[in-house]
Simulated scan of single mutants.
Amino acid sequence: MCKFKISLISLLTVLLIGCSSSTGRYQIENDHSPEKTPPLGHIEDVNPRYEAYSRGGNKDYTVRGIDYKVLRGITTLSERGKASWYGNKFHGHLTSNGERYDMFAMTAAHKNLPLPSYVKVTNLENNKQIIVRVNDRGPFHKGRIIDLSYAAAYKLDMLKTGTAKVEIELLHFPAQEDLSNQFNGEYYIQYLVTSSPGKAEDLGKKHSAEYQVKNLFIAENKLYKLRLGPFNSQVRAEKILAEMKSDYPQAFILHNE
């Protein structure tokens, strides 16, 4: 009797493990179209604009033993290859930059572009064009250069074929601080004081690229005060300060009167 109970428990354990591992973190094993599709004809392209890079999803990474480099600070990119789309399996799950994937929004995934980015996508088979916001990583199938949302694939008329030959073009916008000739920034973020000029220079360049804003360091008594700015918007300075607080809890905003 005991042996029978043990064997039965072992069998149930194997079955449970098999069921739980079949889909991983997704409830659906195989991706597919939504069961109920809302009208998609009214969905417009996103409005491309300058956005600071996201805190998440912008570090170099490895998938299936292959290393991928994030092209931070890139201003131009043009690629030709296959586009695919992803749908119901991933709907509502987190994208690589921490947002929720919405298959009915005009978004996309790319292996190397910084997040977020905006790209124009042209279906070379029918010349239809769209603009999407890249907020995720992928696709990781050979020969594919971009993974489109369900809505974006609908706009390019490639839902039935699943893939299409496309050309993608990065749409670059300069940082907001550089958009106005009347810019007179008043706000700085001071986030670190160090005695190492090399460290000051390296961190300054890193965070300047990360947040798309100028950097400087002030030398005083053999110490270097690291600052980002200037900003002409207190709201934007406070937003970046909140993001930096996890790594630099003593960071604060300086206001030049």
Score class of each variant (00 low, 15 high):
Pro249Arg: 04
Asp202Cys: 05
His91Lys: 13
Ser96Met: 06
Lys120Asp: 03
Asp157Ser: 07
Asn181Tyr: 12
Ser208Arg: 12
Leu16Ala: 11
Cys2Arg: 13
Lys206Gln: 15
Lys205Leu: 13
Ala251Ser: 06
Gly73Tyr: 04
Phe104Cys: 01
Lys142Asn: 01
Asp157Glu: 14
Arg55Cys: 02
Tyr187Gln: 00
Glu243Ile: 04
Lys142Leu: 03
Phe104Lys: 00
Lys36Ser: 04
Tyr118Asn: 02
Tyr101Ser: 01
Val70Leu: 01
Ile146Leu: 13
Ala200Thr: 10
Thr75Asp: 03
Tyr50Asn: 05
Lys59Phe: 07
Leu170Tyr: 13
Asn47Leu: 11
Asp60Val: 02
Thr95Tyr: 05
Thr62Gln: 12
Pro39Lys: 01
Tyr26Phe: 15
Phe217Arg: 12
Gly204Leu: 14
Ala83His: 03
Asn184Met: 01
Arg64Cys: 06
Glu177Tyr: 09
Tyr188Cys: 04
Glu186Val: 11
Glu167Ile: 07
Tyr86Val: 08
Phe217Ile: 09
Val121Pro: 02
Asp136Asn: 14
Val119Phe: 11
Leu192Asp: 06
Arg55Leu: 14
Ile43Gly: 00
Pro116Leu: 07
Glu35Asn: 11
Glu210His: 15
Asp147Thr: 13
Trp85Asp: 02
Lys165Ile: 03
Leu156Gln: 05
Leu40Thr: 00
Val132Thr: 12
Glu201Gln: 10
Pro139Phe: 08
Ser7Asp: 05
Tyr248Ala: 06
